[in-house]
Nucleic acid binder design. Structure first.
Lengths: 227, 227
DNA sequence: CGGCGCCGTCAGAAAGTCGTAAAGAGTCCA
DNA sequence: TGGACTCTTTACGACTTTCTGACGGCGCCG
C-alpha cells in the first residue's frame, strides 16, 4: 500500500534514522550509500520517490539528480547540509523537486514527502473513462469496450492504448512511448513497441491492416486518430 | 510564452517586489490581496501556479489552499513568516506544494517556481512551428505544410529543412550543414548533401529548377530565403 | 576551344523500418 | 506438476530511405 521510497545517504546515522522513520509510517524503503548504487536501485526497485543526500562520496549529488531525471520521472527530494542559495538553485534546476536543509524536523520531511507523492499520484481524480469514437477506455476498471462489446487487453496493451488515447491527434515519438511504458533505461527497443502495437491492433482494430485508431507515422512514431 | 502566475499577499511591499521580479523573468503575473479575490482570480485568469502568503486578512491561508485544491490542480507555493514545523505540515497537508519561509532569496524562489512548473508541464519543450512564407514547419509533429497542404518528408529531409529554416537569410556552409545533420565525423561527403537538397527541393519547391526557399550559394553552401 | 571544378540529376546498391509470426522465458494458479 | 497467459526476443518479407558512383550542364580561365 505505502509508496516505495529510495534513500541515498552515505552517513549510516541519517540513513538509519530516516529509513526507520519512513518504515514506521508504512512506506516501503530501499537504501543505498552511493550515487552509483542509487542509479542501479532505480532500475531494480522502481521507487516512487527518492530522498537524496547531496554529499555523496562517489558522485556529485547534482549529477545524480540529472541522471535520475533522464532515467525516470519520479520526485527527487534533496537533503543537504549546505543551505546556500546557490546550492539550492543548482539542485532544483538539475531536477530536484524539493530541497531540505539539515537539520530538519521529522514531521516536515514527512509532510514534504507526502506533498511530492501527492503530485505524482493525484489520488485518483483521473479515471473518468476515455471515449474515442466507439472505443471506451475505463481506466479505473482496466477495461475497454468497442461498440459496447468488451475487449480483453493485457496490462501492457492497456497502458499503451491509454497513453496514446490521452493525446489524440498528436504524434508521439517512439522514444516518448518507450519512456512512458517501459521507463527510459530502454536503449533501442523499438522492436518491443512494434510487437505490442501489432498485438493491440489485432484486438481493437476492426481491420488491423488498415488501422482506424492507432496510426503509424513512418520514421517518427505513432498517433491516435483524432476522432 | 511565460507561465501565468498568481500572487496573493496583503503586504503591498512584498506583492510589488515579487511581482516585478517575476515579470522581469518573463512570467505573466496576476496579483490579489485577499483570499476571496484569489479564488476569483483563479477562475478568471486561469494561472498555472499560485504564490500564496499565509497571513491574509480575510481567510486562513490553509483554507485558501484547500479551496484552491478543490477548484483546480495547479501548484501552490506558500510563503510564510512562520517557520514552525507545525505550520509547514499543516500547509503542506492542506495541498501546498512547497513552503518557503521569509525572508527568502529571490533566486531560490524562482528556482522553486521553476521546479513546480516543470512538474505540471513535463518534458514539453513546446517548440512552436516555424513559419517561413507559406511554409509551416511543425517540429513537434514532424510535419510540413505549404499553403495548407501537407508535405511528406523523410527524416533527413526534415532535419535539413529545419536546420536551414532556423537561420533564414544566413549562408550556411557545406561543412556546417554536414556537421549539423550527419555529425562531425563525416569526411567530405558533400555529394550526400547535393542529393538531399535535390530531394527536398523536389518536394517543397513549386519549381525546383528555380528555387524559392533553398538557394544555392556557389562554392560556399546554401541559404534559406529571407521571407 | 578544352580542361577544371562545382552543381543538379539519375539509378542501383546498401541499410533501415514496419508489420507479422512464432519460439523461448517467466509468472500465476489450480 | 502442468497449463494458461503474458512478455520478450528473433526472424523474415515488403517496403522506404539513404548512400554511392556516374553523367551532363554550367561558368570560369587559360
Amino acid at each position: 500500500m505505502g509508496a516505495r521510497i529510495l534513500i541515498v545517504d552515505d552517513e549510516p546515522n541519517i540513513l538509519g534514522t530516516v529509513s526507520s522513520l519512513l518504515r514506521s509510517r508504512g512506506y516501503e524503503v530501499f537504501s543505498t550509500m552511493s550515487g552509483r548504487a542509487a542509479l542501479e536501485s532505480l532500475e531494480r526497485d522502481k521507487p516512487d520517490l527518492i530522498v537524496l543526500d547531496l554529499g555523496l562520496p562517489d558522485m556529485d549529488g547534482v549529477d545524480v539528480c540529472r541522471h535520475v531525471r533522464e532515467a525516470a520521472s519520479l520526485p527527487i527530494l534533496v537533503l543537504s547540509a549546505r543551505g546556500g542559495e546557490k546550492d539550492k538553485v543548482r539542485a532544483l534546476d538539475a531536477g530536484a523537486d524539493d530541497y531540505v536543509t539539515k537539520p530538519f524536523g521529522a514531521e516536515e520531511l514527512l509532510a514534504r514527502i507526502r506533498a511530492s507523492l501527492r503530485r505524482v499520484e493525484p489520488a485518483a481524480p483521473a479515471s473518468e473513462p476515455l471515449v474515442r469514437g466507439d472505443l471506451v477506455i475505463d481506466r479505473e476498471r482496466f477495461r475497454v469496450q468497442r461498440a459496447g462489446e468488451e475487449i480483453r487487453l493485457t496490462p501492457k496493451e492497456f497502458e499503451l492504448l491509454t497513453y496514446l488515447a490521452q493525446h489524440p491527434g498528436k504524434v508521439l515519438t517512439h522514444r516518448a512511448i518507450l519512456k512512458a511504458i517501459w521507463g527510459v533505461h530502454t536503449a533501442d527497443q523499438t522492436e518491443h513497441l512494434r510487437v505490442l502495437v501489432g498485438a493491440l491492433r489485432k484486438k481493437i482494430e476492426p481491420t488491423p491492416s488498415s488501422p482506424r485508431y492507432i496510426l503509424t507515422e513512418p520514421w517518427v512514431g505513432y498517433r491516435f486518430a483524432d476522432l
